[in-house]
Amino acid sequence: MLFLLPPSETKVDGGSGASGVDLDALAFPSLRAQREDVLSRLAVLSQDVEASLAALKIGPRLRSEVDRNRALPTAPVLPALARYTGVLFDPVRASGLSVDEWAWAGRHLVVHSALLGLVSATDLVPAYRLSHDSRLPGASLKATWRAAVSQSLAEVDDVVVDLRSEGYVGLGAAQADRSTYLRVVSGADGARRALNHFNKKSKGLLVRALLDDRPSLETLDDLVEWAGGRGIGLEPGARAGETALVSESVLTPVG
């Protein structure tokens, strides 16, 4: 089973090496042409600070993000799961993962980067600034990534559990008959309402629980059974192809 995560705007600085990302070493090698294209267009954009701020939809106080992008050819790298920070990634506590947890993450966790497309949790990536709705010169990111990412996901043998935001789904949807979209809902009063505020945190705590247990999962029924044993509420979603994660069942940290 593959768990597909969104990236985060915020990222840890630093890492190892000084030669930039090694495209030959990344998972999903069929995305290489798109990766080279996006890196090349971002390099051109990064030479113009004002244009970069507008394209990235950030203000002058975040000019350092443009400097990050300009430094990508020689930037140090970190495993993707350790690079991203924020509400979803903080509960994962990547800096403290054991060897066994990293091994499980490398097999089962994928992050959808606007810069590099699909990357394994253990793929080495630089710090950068680029979002699904950023405006690079030339084609849109949706036009660049959508078909290639969808094809890569269609070639995955495992069931895909999609934890991405809808913006990143727009950069490449998973195959409907081999995936489920995870939507976080509230169930405090017995009703089911989609949530925004605790959405990312609930997903992060679910990933943390998966890393704690490292279950062997092949089907959605396997996932639901494992979650039930953990006290985590997973149930059929309100829409076809969706699974609901009841936020109250994971907001108290598990494991």
Rank of each mutant, 00 (worst) to 15 (best):
D212Y: 04
G228S: 15
S19N: 14
A174M: 05
W226N: 10
F198Q: 04
G172S: 10
V66H: 04
D189M: 08
R61S: 15
E218R: 12
V224L: 11
D22G: 00
G170R: 06
W104Y: 15
H108V: 07
S52Q: 05
L163K: 04
L31R: 06
T219F: 05
I58D: 07
L163N: 06
D213I: 00
T144N: 04
P253V: 14
L116M: 03
D158Q: 12
P79Y: 07
V156N: 06
G255R: 12
Y128G: 05
P236L: 05
A139W: 05
G187S: 13
G228P: 01
H197Q: 12
V125M: 04
Q175K: 15
F89Q: 12
I58E: 07
H132V: 00
S186L: 03
L195A: 08
V149E: 10
E155W: 02
S40M: 02
G172R: 03
S95R: 14
L115N: 11
R208N: 13
L251G: 06
L251H: 07
G96W: 01
N69Q: 11
L116W: 01
E50W: 13
P215M: 14
H197P: 02
L26A: 08
T74S: 14
T243P: 06
K11N: 11
E218D: 14
E166S: 13
P6F: 08
E36A: 02
E65T: 09
L39A: 10
R68V: 07
G229S: 08
S150N: 12
L118R: 10
P91G: 03
G241N: 08
D162M: 12
S8R: 01
F89S: 09
S113N: 08
I232W: 13
V207W: 09
V161S: 02
L26C: 04
V38T: 11
L109K: 11
D37T: 12
L4F: 03
Q175Y: 09
L116C: 03
D48G: 11
L56A: 04
D222W: 09
T10L: 00
S249A: 06
L42D: 04
T85S: 11
G237M: 12
N199R: 10
E65I: 01
N199T: 04
L205Q: 12
P137D: 13
R146S: 13
N69D: 14
K142Q: 14
S40C: 02
S120F: 04
A174F: 01
E9Y: 04
D221E: 15
D158G: 08
E166W: 08
A43S: 13
S179A: 10
D100W: 03
Q34H: 10
V250C: 03
S152F: 01
L115Q: 02
S152T: 04
L206Y: 10
D213H: 13
E242R: 11
L62F: 00
L136F: 02
S95D: 15
D133K: 00
L220F: 02
A148E: 10
A80K: 03
A188H: 07
D123E: 03
P7K: 02
R193A: 09
R208C: 06
L78P: 09
G241W: 06
A18P: 07
